[in-house]
């Protein structure tokens, strides 16, 4: 099965480093996001949803993505993935190299996407943020799962707190 067929079946991925098409505009990214037949059929609805989620993408629709900041580009990448109308959205390190304020915007958006009925699989080094956001979490160390369970349980797990959340979090 080709990758485009996997996308057609409802799996979308936001790759690490965003991987945008540098010379193309914000709107062109969203147009391309709805490339598969299933996505094209609901394109206007998807576009409205993405614009509601990130109004920025509407304001800057004619801008070439090269001119945007890292966080803004991440919104384009997520918007592009959402335009394929996915059932499962996978994100690889969406907070990497992005201003903290925009990290919050993006994580809030992910929660909203999830509430709208899209399953979200997030790979994230920002453990505090990931655990606050997710329903269920897995801790990977050197490629092995060393802890798993409901996020709330992991947040209070002594090992996880010591290893990932730092001494301040342990004392709190």
């Amino acid at each position: 099965m080709g990758v485009h067929q996997i996308v057609e079946r409802g799996l979308a991925m936001v790759p690490e480093g965003r991987r945008l098409f540098a010379g193309m505009t914000v709107q062109e990214h969203l147009d391309l996001g709805a490339f598969t037949p299933r996505a094209r059929a609901v394109r206007p609805a998807s576009l409205a949803r993405v614009h509601a989620l990130f109004p920025f993408l509407h304001e800057r629709r004619r801008h070439v993505v090269r001119s945007l900041s890292g966080g803004q580009q991440q919104m384009v990448a997520i918007g592009r993935a959402l335009m394929s109308n996915p059932r499962l959205l996978m994100l690889d390190e969406p907070s990497l190299g992005i201003a903290p304020r925009l990290v919050r915007t993006i994580l809030t958006a992910l929660a909203e996407i999830n509430r709208a009925g899209v399953a979200v699989l997030l790979v994230e080094q920002n453990v505090q943020a990931a655990l606050t956001l997710a329903h269920r979490a897995y801790v990977l160390e050197s490629g092995r799962i060393t802890a798993e369970g409901p996020s709330a349980a992991l947040l209070s797990d002594a090992h996880v707190r010591r290893a990932y959340l730092g001494p301040l979090a342990t004392r709190a």
Binding site: G2, V3, H4, V7, E8, A12, M13, P15, R19, L20, F21, A22, G23, M24, E28, D31, L32, G33, F35, T36, A39, R80, A81, S84
Partner: peptide, 20 residues
């Protein structure tokens, strides 16, 4: 547009659902 996207980054084009 798909051709331009493929020229820029064919792997990203694949992830976007384009039959590269």
């Amino acid at each position: 547009k798909a051709i331009r996207a493929t020229a820029e980054d064919w792997q990203a084009a694949l992830l976007t659902g384009i039959d590269v």
